[in-house]
Structure formats: structure tokens, C-alpha cells
Design a protein around this nucleic acid. Sequence first.
DNA 1: CGCGTAACCGGAGCCAGACTCACCTTATGG
DNA 2: CCATAAGGTGAGTCTGGCTCCGGTTACGCG
Lengths: 192, 192
Amino acid sequence: MPSSRPLRADARRNREALLRAAREALLAADDAHVEVIARRAGVAIGTLYRHFETRGALVAEVYRQDVAELCAAPARLLADHAPDEALRTFLLLIVEHAAVGKGMGEALESVLATESPVFDDARNEMARALDELLAAGAAAGLVRGDVDGRIVLRALGGICGLRAAGWKDDAVRIAAILYDGLRYGAPSPRDS
Amino acid sequence: MPSSRPLRADARRNREALLRAAREALLAADDAHVEVIARRAGVAIGTLYRHFETRGALVAEVYRQDVAELCAAPARLLADHAPDEALRTFLLLIVEHAAVGKGMGEALESVLATESPVFDDARNEMARALDELLAAGAAAGLVRGDVDGRIVLRALGGICGLRAAGWKDDAVRIAAILYDGLRYGAPSPRDS
DNA sequence: CGCGTAACCGGAGCCAGACTCACCTTATGG
DNA sequence: CCATAAGGTGAGTCTGGCTCCGGTTACGCG
């Protein structure tokens, strides 16, 4: 029932302008009120709501694009690295990704931590990407086999939602700890 | 400079009624709007705001009481268990604690994940409690020594903030992974 | 080219929910 | 008892997401 027909040219323009504006606003951080986004896109509020159910849906859509890109990484990483190393890198990649802007991290948190259907796509895609890495690691005997992508995703979602100053360094360290918990052969005594 | 004089009797009654009402409302979950809390305490909104700066401050105060109790646990645990086991138990205790009610978990998240000065007390106290366990574990050579309580607290804060259905099981598993990442001698291959 | 129509405009206005303020009410100590 | 400061009140403000609708514009098919 979606896609009655290809969208009129001006509608498509506006839709894209909105997405662009939203992305900029989210990167620029702090607020990103619907009105600001709409004005920045050069359209009226009503138009924004013509294209997106809610503010959250717009944000989700912006984020979905990034997520798709991010989810291409595992295949690439697995080609070049051992599965455990690939996993480690991907975890850091996610953190990095959430760090680009305040609003962006907020968005990631929404994607990861809620279960609103609006974010289902993005969430599933990311869980799948993680599963890919986890399965490869487990098959190689490097990563425990009793964890699925959904769980890891949630753990990361929590971490990335934090918005305190210096959170990124913390997030990186937490991701590292998480990684150690996921693989076999975690740090041995006296590594300090 | 605080405590000009001991608070008038009725003021004290109201303050306590508010805390009681807030706790009930938070346990009862979902909303806990200021108006609901105030009515439940039998006072007007203005009275609520006479006693607490913001809604968050009230929530924080409610939570501070529980935190104090929770923070007594490490000493007890260390007396009865090996440091690593004590740490594991404490992590689960925190998760458990966040699970008592929706609003409560939200409160914990605020305490753990934000850096608003309102929550400083609770946060410091919990970080201290965790430091106690981590230090004991590190001294015994069971836990890595490069992590402090603040980090662990943040990781937990993120996890406990999740409000999705079935989150508690997830939180428990994530806590377990985190624990494995914190200690030496994590699971060895083929435990599956 | 011309018409039917999808899309847009613009903004007044609704609603929820946190918070404020000008004005009463009452406990309390002298 | 009464003066008075501490306390209480609740209608109202503010913010920010979201809705609605009459009128206009730009597509794009035939």
C-alpha cells in the first residue's frame, strides 16, 4: 500500500530538503525543533508533517541512511581481519558514529534502545550486522556463542545515549570492556 | 548555609508525603506527572515546587534514599564472598534494583547517565561503592585494575535506562558480559 | 496547451506537562 | 493572643510537538 506513484518532483525536492535540514540540525546538536528544521528546509511545518508521521519518524529516516552505510562495514571488516578484531572495530565504529553530534547520538539511542516500530528497520539491520560478526567469531572459536546481536545492540544503545561531557572516551572504554566480555581469552592477570 | 531552622511541622509532613507519593507513583510506573504526585500527596503543585527545585530533584531525592541502602551492600558482600563474586553480585543487584518499576529505572538512568549536579550525591556514592569492589578485586588479582567505578556506572546506567519489554533479562545478560569483561579469566573457549 | 489534482503554504490553535507567581492561610514563639 | 514569616494555593505561562483548513501553486498526463 505504500508508493502509489513515484512522488511529484517538487514533493521529492522538499522531502530531500527536509532530510538534509534535519541532518544538519541534528549534527548542529542541541535542539532541532521541528520548526527549525522546517524553516531550514524552506518549507512550512505542515509540509514536514505531510512527509513524516512525527518528528521521530523524520529523525529515524535520517538515521536509517547512516545505519545502512554502517551496516555494510562487517562484510568489509571480515574480509580483512580476524573475526574478533572485526567485532572490536565495529563496536568502536558504532561509538564513533554516535559521536558525530549530540542529536545524532540521541537518534542512535532511539534506534537502539526503544522498540517503537518506527525504528524497526534500522534496529533489525544493525542487529543483523552484529550477528554476522558474532557468528563468524563464534565459528572461529574466538567469541562466545551465547550472545546475539540484539543484546549487544542494547548494551551499545545505552552507552551511546549518554550525553555527558567527555562521554565519548567513556563510551570507547566501555565498548572495550564489552568486547572483552564477548570474546574468549580476555585480558590475563598482570596486564594492568 | 542551609538549614536556617528546623522546618515547620506541616512543612515537614508535606515534604515527606511528597516523597512517599513520588515513590509510589514511580513504582506504579508509566507517568508520575508532577500533578499526580502532588495530588497523591494531598498538596498543590506549588507546594511540591516549594520543596523541590524541579521534578528531577524530587525524583533524585527519592532515589538517593534507595541508593544509600544499595551502597551498603559492597561491604557486606566483600565480607562473605571473593571480590570478583562480590562484584558480580553487586552488578546484578543494581540491575534488579532498577527493575522494581518503570519510573524507578528511569530515575536510575538519570542518576547514572546525566551529570546534572542534582544527582551528584547519588552518583558519587555509587561510584564509590563500585570502586570499593573493583579495588578489592584488583588487589586480589581477579579484576582488571584499569577501570574505575564511574565507567562501570555509566555502562550500567545505559543498560538500565532501557525500557523495552523484557529488558530485564537483557540487562542481566549484559551485566554478565560486562562482568566478564571486567575480570580476568573470563569464559574459556568451548564453554558455549 | 490546458486541466485535474497532488502538494504546498501559512499560521492559528490544540494539547500535554513542567514550572511560576501573586495572593491567601496558618503555625508558632514571644 | 497576635504578628509575622513560613507555608500553601492553583490558575496561568511557556515550550514544543502536532493538527487543521481555506486558499494557492506547480506538475505532468492526455
